[in-house]
């Protein structure tokens, strides 16, 4: 529908919508995160859900304690290599459509603990991340900004076509490789389908699995 006509109609008191808009509006307004915190960022995440910042205003009031009922995984904190397989397994056990917010420097890149022997250098090595939030830890406002960014992303997703989201594409994978504990490192150390780096001389922002939006870095 022509946006001007739609605007005019709404001014006259007639509300028009499309199935796609309605569907995305419903989805973006009830994104339920997984109760899941790894380190200090989780404290900020908890603060975000409490009365002062009140993430419930955006439809994320219920943190589900089971991945079966969750839509959003907020990776809040340092992902150790010992924890990484569990994080990926939890993500795999979430039903589609599912989204990931990498919260804080550690979840993005390893952060201040990057050179630690047991720190995964970014969760996007194993699972597709939709929104990255920098900060150590990010303030609740930053998490809310990331959440609104995610909602905007959901709102622009098309139900059909080439750029439809992963959950509507039967060929796109829903599960990702769960790394195994190896003798010296995780096996594999990264999921090459998600993690593309051409060369270190020209660092590129790693792309996510959903190619329809580069994400916020």
């Amino acid at each position: 529908m022509d946006p001007e006509l739609k605007n005019e109609l709404s001014r006259q008191g007639i509300f028009t919508t499309t199935l796609e808009e309605l569907y995305n509006w419903g989805r973006k307004s009830s994104v339920w995160p997984l109760t899941f915190g790894l380190a200090c960022c989780a404290i900020e995440m908890i603060a975000t859900t409490m009365a002062r910042y009140d993430l419930a205003r955006f439809g994320a009031e219920i943190f589900r304690p089971s991945p079966r009922q969750a839509d959003l995984m907020i990776v809040a904190g340092t992902v150790t290599k010992k924890m990484a397989p569990q994080v990926v397994r939890l993500y795999n056990q979430m039903p589609e459509p599912k989204y990931v917010i990498a919260m804080g420097a550690c979840a993005i890149s390893g952060g201040p603990f990057k050179q630690g022997y047991n720190v995964l250098k970014g969760i996007d090595r194993y699972i597709p991340v939709d929104v990255h939030i920098p900060g150590c830890p990010p303030r609740p406002e930053a998490l809310m900004d990331a959440f609104i960014t995610l909602q905007k992303k959901i709102a622009t997703q098309h139900l059909t076509g080439v750029d439809r989201p992963r959950h509507l594409n039967p060929d796109a994978p829903s599960e990702f490789i769960v790394p195994e504990f190896g003798a010296h490192d995780l096996e594999p150390p990264k999921n090459l389908k998600l993690w593309h780096i051409t060369s270190n001389s020209s660092p590129k922002i790693p792309s996510t699995a959903d190619n329809n939006e580069p994400g916020k870095d």
Binding site: S109, Q115, Y117, P189, N200, P203, P206
Partner: peptide, 14 residues
């Protein structure tokens, strides 16, 4: 003398 796995492929400010 521990040699950590080299997973520094992506370093914006090395």
């Amino acid at each position: 003398d521990y040699i950590e796995p080299n997973d520094y492929e992506y370093e914006p400010t090395p």
